[in-house]
Each structure stands twice: as C-alpha cells, then as structure tokens.
Design a protein around this nucleic acid. Sequence first.
DNA 1: GCCAACGTTGGC
DNA 2: GCCAACGTTGGC
Length: 155
Amino acid sequence: MPQKRRYWLMKSEPSSFSIDDLIKTTSQTTSWDGVRNYQARNFMREMAIGDQVLFYHSNADPPAIVGTAEVVNTTYTDPSQFDHNDDHYDPASDPSSPRWDMVDIKYVRKFSRPLALEQLRKETKLKGMVLLRKGSRLSVQPVSPLEWQHILSLA
DNA sequence: GCCAACGTTGGC
DNA sequence: GCCAACGTTGGC
C-alpha cells in the first residue's frame, strides 16, 4: 500500500520568492533552500513525493495563501549553507555532516484570489491550524487533511 | 517602523 | 542545565 499523501504549508516572502516567481521558473520547479530552523527542517525530512503544499506569502500585503505546489524531490543537502556569499551561509555546518536540507517543489495552481490571513482566522474549521496559532513563525508546517480540504473549498 | 513571540547562543 | 542576551520572524 502506498504511503498516504500528506499536506504542508510553506512560507515565502514574495519580495524574495513569490508564487509568480515559481510559475516563471524552469519546469515550474524550485529547490526550497534557505530553511534554517530545525523544526521546519525536520518537517521537510518527513515529506514524500506527491505531498501537497500550500504556498503562503508572509510579510506581504495581505499575508495570504496564494496557491498550491507539490513535492517532487525529497530532502537532500542544501548547498547554500556552505556558500559564504549566501544570506543563509552557516559557518557552523560541517560539510561531512551537513545540517540543512531542502526539497524540490513544483507549481500546481494559483488561486484566483488569495486567501488572506484575516479571512482564514474567521474560519471555525481552521481554528487549530498551526499558521493561526499566536506567535507561530514556523516556515514549514503540517496541515491536516480536513484543513487542506476546507482551504481548497474556499479557494 | 514597532514590537511580541520565538529560537539560539554562550557564560556560568 | 539554566537563563540572560541577542537575533529573527512576521503581523500590524
């Protein structure tokens, strides 16, 4: 029996990488590099090919879920951790035992209108969402099947 | 630009 | 192992 498909949410600041940037990318696929938080990394390590991802714009006006993507490659070493010129360079990461991983995701769809954070907060069915928890900053987070279903029904 | 919430670092 | 100091995230 194949593993059950899982659902996730990934945050990106549109000023650095938006869903439109993803659409314009070769093969509409990108490496999700730059994650430097252990909890977020560990969630990425749980991802399987075919898992579905909500694409979220943080530090945006308005902050919103703007579309979906899917996982097309499971975790492998994020090379930017060794790049001195990269914003996400991590001098403490040992090349013989790299700390940080990334996955590849591929564009699936862009919502006709973004689902703003403010709107999501009004949805009773989404009350338990990690995204909506006070002070939640996690950039890669799990989404329950029911939350996923409800969000798609809103889109 | 402010600042609350959170994660990490490092002295002890 | 504690915890103060610091840095970052991200909504507002």
